[in-house]
């Protein structure tokens, strides 16, 4: 990774964080908890951030429609997260593949 990419990535991430901060409190709470969970299970398409910025897009629409966050995604936030990353390979999948030397699924 070039230094340039790191700086660019940081800038984008900072802009993203600013958008999260601008969300109403209930959305912000749920977003942060989701992000924490997703960092742990680590679906592979995380690094480019499109998953996270997509969530914020979606949340902003919900805010504009005057909805509460759980009204938007349902009470089971974990189930929503799992659905989000359902067909993404996780870090664990990749690791397990590298051990067994073949695709895990």
């Amino acid at each position: 990774m070039r230094i340039q990419d790191i700086i660019e990535g940081k800038k984008q991430w900072r802009a993203h964080v600013a958008r999260v901060k601008a969300l109403p409190p209930d959305y912000r709470i749920v977003y942060k908890e989701m992000q924490r969970y997703l960092f742990k299970i680590g679906p592979v398409d995380l690094p480019d951030g499109s998953l996270f910025s997509g969530i914020v897009d979606f949340f902003e629409e919900g805010v504009a429609a005057g909805k509460g966050v759980l009204e938007l995604i349902g009470d089971d936030v974990a189930a929503f997260c799992d659905e989000l990353v359902e067909d993404s390979r996780t870090y664990a999948d990749i690791y397990q593949e590298s051990v067994s030397g073949r695709k895990a699924r």
């Binding site: 997509g54 979606f58 909805k67 938007l72 995604i73 659905e83 989000l84 067909d87």
Partner: peptide
């Protein structure tokens, strides 16, 4: 809920089954 539909749409997009257009609301 909308979240359920969102995850489905995301999957359809990833699997190349839909054409997505952004329009102002």
């Amino acid at each position: 809920v909308e979240g359920t539909v969102y995850t489905i749409l995301l999957r359809l997009e990833k699997n190349g089954l839909v054409q997505v257009t952004k329009r102002p609301s």
